[in-house]
């Protein structure tokens, strides 16, 4: 850390790593929210079997696709210029 001199200084490096970390946390959180939301929307709560049936599977695929679109739509509205992913 103290060796090279023409690299960013310690504080700048903290900022770079901090940003990367926040970005990853964001992606993980997006994935988790998507997972839980689509589970709630698509999977039968009575748990009569341990397999996902055909209806649940196609619901999950469409749910992920629509969630993705909502993420993009909201990203455009926020006008951040940055891609939501």
């Amino acid at each position: 850390m103290a060796a090279n001199n023409n690299t960013p200084n310690a504080l700048e490096k903290e900022q770079i790593f901090g940003m990367a970390e926040k970005e990853m946390e964001y992606r993980v959180e997006l994935f988790n929210k998507l997972t839980h939301t689509c589970f709630a929307k698509c999977v039968e709560k009575r748990y009569k079997e341990s397999e996902l049936n055909m209806g649940e599977n196609s619901c999950i695929d469409r749910c992920v696709s629509k969630y993705w679109q909502v993420t993009n739509l909201v990203g455009q509205l926020l006008g951040s210029g940055r891609p939501p992913m």
């Binding site: 901090g18 929210k33 929307k41 749910c63 629509k66 679109q69």
Partner: peptide
């Protein structure tokens, strides 16, 4: 602040998706 605004973004997406999207007969909105 960065973490907070990214979280806000995630929460907003989750809330509006939950309130607005309820049918899954097609894969586009």
């Amino acid at each position: 602040q960065i973490r907070d605004s990214l979280r806000m973004y995630n929460t907003l997406v989750e809330r509006c998706f939950t309130d607005c999207v309820d049918t899954f007969r097609r894969k586009t909105l």
